[in-house]
Design a protein around this nucleic acid. Structure first.
Lengths: 206, 206
DNA sequence: CACGGTAGCGGACTGAAGTCCGTTTAGGAA
DNA sequence: TTCCTAAACGGACTTCAGTCCGCTACCGTG
């Protein structure tokens, strides 16, 4: 199956009172169950040790249900990630400066990079799982679209040339794979890495 | 099994006349057979449509042999890639400038980026396959070590700050995933992309 | 040339992702 | 309240990567 683009599950067809399409009650219940089960199992055994059958059993639903809701294993990982990214997204859009609005573009960009590296560092297993058997899946997530457009806008504001490409390039340097490489293979630590990448962002902004 | 670090197959133990460890004749023959078979099948059906069983059957060897020689599916892909990268490596190390020695650091870097983008573009399926179920496998390949050290040296020569990190960041922007994203999702074409990335390299060099 | 130790061989087996399709049920309509 | 239909369910099934281990044959030694 091809992973769906705009979210973990197919768009419901029925229309609710507020005009939004609404998910059937059993579907919503099972989605929540699956996410809670997956979270529990990942916490207990580590992301790599969890299979889809495990999650289905722990959630008390069939495997088919899991695949209907999340598309594939990567989609489940993305859904789990979504919950953890939400806080950072909110601080980005409406939190205090320098991460949130109010600071200069370069300062905001640096704050973004520092926070984002941290987010990746803390969720690296889940991020890698979200790309298994679907290379580039992250590019199609709503979250990634937000990161890119945030960087693009700040780079443009700072007067950088070709902010589109540079935003993508900056985020490429912040990919889970790359951060893992710096962390595991080169034994860089989080704070030193965050500092170096902030410098990189500063260079890209000029 | 864990992919081997320095090449596709385990270091042979017997020592040959010239002092190099030597591969047993049947092993060498089967490696060549497997590579030829894999090349044929990929050309005929596309990389994604080829299974390890297919390759084993086409090569006339057992599946176990394939895994002994190449470690896993990604290792086979890397071995196939190795053949295609060799020409570029040679032009890099001893070909005519600006790619080879003789030109200024920035010009060489730009020539590298243009050539490398092309190399990735032409072998993108194989590159993605080399990372299936082994995220970050490319970082452990000998070829990648060459690309990184080449970029690092040129960046240092050009006077860039933190050439280590910048070399990695530049290559992150040139990863197969990222190039695929630019090509497929954003519909950029090869020459425009090469030009933009060359500009990025110039910015990183200063 | 004969022999023995060891690297190499190969295919049956395992485990997990992802699919299929007959069955169940939510929830709107009459 | 009953009925109807599309959505959702679930588990058996398929496919494929990767492992295991008893067998084979290469090649260095005497």
């Amino acid at each position: 199956m091809v992973r769906r683009v705009s979210g973990p599950d197919p768009a419901p067809v029925a229309i609710g009172p507020a005009g939004q399409p609404v998910e059937r009650a059993d579907a919503a219940r099972n989605r929540a169950r699956a996410l809670r089960a997956a979270g529990r199992l990942c916490a207990a055994r580590g992301v790599a040790g969890v299979t889809m059958d495990d999650v289905a059993a722990e959630a008390g639903v069939g495997k088919g249900t899991l695949y209907r809701r999340f598309g594939d294993k990567g989609g489940l990982a993305m859904a789990l990630l979504g919950e953890r990214e939400r806080g950072f997204q909110e601080r980005l859009l409406s939190g205090p400066p320098p991460l949130g609005p109010g600071a200069g573009a370069v300062d905001r960009l640096i704050a973004f990079v520092e926070g984002y590296v941290r987010l990746v560092w803390d969720n690296i297993d889940l991020l890698e799982m979200s790309e298994t058997n679907a290379p580039g899946a992250r590019f199609r997530s709503g979250a990634h679209a937000l990161w890119v457009s945030h960087c693009r806008i700040l780079l443009a504001e700072a007067g950088a040339v070709d902010p589109d490409l540079r935003a993508d390039a900056l985020l490429a340097a912040l990919s889970a794979e790359q951060i893992r490489h710096w962390s595991a293979d080169q034994e860089r630590d989080l704070s030193e890495l965050a500092r170096s990448l902030a410098d990189l962002a500063r260079a890209l902004a000029s």
